[in-house]
Simulated assay, not measured.
Amino acid sequence: MAETQGALKKTPLFDLHVELGAKMVPFAGYEMPVQYPLGVKKEHLHTRNQAGLFDVSHMGQVKLSGANAAAALEKLVPVDIIDLPAGKQRYALFTNEDGGIMDDLMVTNYGDWIYVVVNAACKEQDIAHMQANLGEGVELELLDDRALVAVQGPTAAQAISRLAPEAGEMVFMDSRQMQIDGVDCFVSRSGYTGEDGYEISIPSADADRLCRLFLEQPEIEGIGLGARDSLRLESGLCLYGNDLDQSTTPLEGSLIWAISKCRRADGERAGGFPGADKVLDQITNKNWTRKRVGLLGEGRAPVREGTELFDADGNKIGVVTSGTYGPTIEKPVAMAYVETAFSPLDTVVFAEVRGKKLPMTVSRMPFIEQRYYRG
């Protein structure tokens, strides 16, 4: 259902986007910049070559506190939260009773509290899910007075270290509370582009000023949702609602790596999360019937979400869930779900685009080399 303009929320950086000439579009209930005058392709390539500033303030930021917070959250995800070291971040999944993925999220241990970032479109559902299931002794606070931005790209560290030298000491998935130009921020060295960079939570009142300071750094340009999507797709990163949903298990979604070993069938804290029986059965018996794969096309025509996939005999065997033309690799890239028989690498499938069957090859993801800084 289309959202009316009057119903849309604005992030703390709305005025800055308009001033920078952004084209604003409705996204997850917010007015968000899809591109700036630079244009989507140039924004994409600038992020790959230098650094980009992304507004992701539409995401949900949550603080969990209480002595039992880690153990309580661990009951909702197939991930090791109890032993997550202080100052570290981890990717996690909320699962439902059928083992389907309710959302993917980032969890940070800040020592005496846990910081959770959830997807914008799932924010209300996820908060209600946590409130209903975390139990007594865990306090949940929605941090709705904070902006969230990402600075991504190979020169992101040198730009941010100029303003906060401590940021340069961090490695991939480190998280710290630090001051940037006198502002108390939560900073993680992580992101959604496949590049080195940071995600930075900023008090709303300081967000505009701090982001103008970021944009004064010669490496950094404002980047919109269009390039964010092509960057994450080249990096093989899922978009919830497209590539993952409530009917998809972690195994079907090729996310077995996101199930901690201690939570698997032979682990010391096996199961104990919603849908564990089905998920552990799939791990043990390898009995899922479809799988998320990466596809590389030929020529220049992008193969978009919803495109049906066929085998050489014309039988439908899958569907594309995300697709675009990859500006870095100069080929059409896509993610899709196919029957498991067609999931091995180098299998050729055919995408039906405007009545033509275009060949695509099952390929490794990420499609580019991820350049996270691991020290």
Results as ranks from 00 to 15, higher is better:
residue 128 A to Y: 15
residue 142 L to D: 07
residue 143 L to A: 06
residue 135 G to E: 11
residue 120 A to I: 05
residue 117 V to Y: 00
residue 172 F to E: 00
residue 155 T to F: 13
residue 101 I to F: 03
residue 99 G to T: 01
residue 129 H to D: 03
residue 128 A to S: 14
residue 139 E to W: 01
residue 126 D to V: 11
residue 149 V to D: 03
residue 124 E to C: 02
residue 103 D to L: 04
residue 165 P to G: 04
residue 157 A to K: 15
residue 159 A to F: 15
residue 99 G to Y: 03
residue 150 A to Q: 10
residue 164 A to W: 00
residue 180 I to L: 11
residue 187 V to F: 08
residue 105 L to A: 07
residue 156 A to W: 05
residue 126 D to R: 01
residue 131 Q to H: 11
residue 184 D to F: 01
residue 175 S to M: 09
residue 171 V to K: 13
residue 147 A to Y: 05
residue 118 V to A: 02
residue 172 F to W: 13
residue 120 A to Q: 05
residue 131 Q to S: 10
residue 125 Q to S: 04
residue 137 G to I: 12
residue 145 D to Q: 15
residue 117 V to W: 00
residue 174 D to R: 09
residue 121 A to K: 12
residue 110 Y to E: 07
residue 174 D to P: 14
residue 123 K to F: 10
residue 150 A to I: 07
residue 159 A to H: 09
residue 144 D to R: 04
residue 98 D to Q: 13
residue 109 N to L: 02
residue 132 A to M: 12
residue 173 M to L: 10
residue 119 N to Y: 07
residue 154 P to K: 03
residue 118 V to G: 00
residue 157 A to S: 14
residue 129 H to K: 12
residue 125 Q to R: 10
residue 126 D to Q: 06
residue 180 I to V: 11
residue 109 N to D: 13
residue 134 L to K: 00
residue 165 P to K: 11
residue 108 T to H: 09
residue 117 V to A: 02
residue 184 D to M: 09
residue 114 I to A: 01
residue 129 H to R: 14
residue 139 E to Q: 12
residue 137 G to Q: 13
residue 169 E to R: 15
residue 107 V to G: 05
residue 168 G to W: 08
residue 115 Y to K: 02
residue 183 V to H: 01
residue 114 I to H: 06
residue 185 C to M: 10
residue 142 L to E: 10
residue 132 A to I: 08
residue 143 L to T: 02
residue 171 V to S: 06
residue 157 A to H: 11
residue 139 E to R: 13
residue 171 V to C: 05
residue 147 A to K: 07
residue 149 V to H: 02
residue 161 S to N: 10
residue 161 S to D: 13
residue 123 K to E: 11
residue 173 M to S: 01
residue 123 K to T: 08
residue 98 D to I: 06
residue 137 G to T: 11
residue 176 R to E: 11
residue 98 D to C: 02
residue 116 V to M: 05
residue 108 T to A: 14
residue 98 D to V: 05
residue 168 G to A: 14
residue 98 D to P: 02
residue 122 C to E: 08
residue 101 I to E: 00
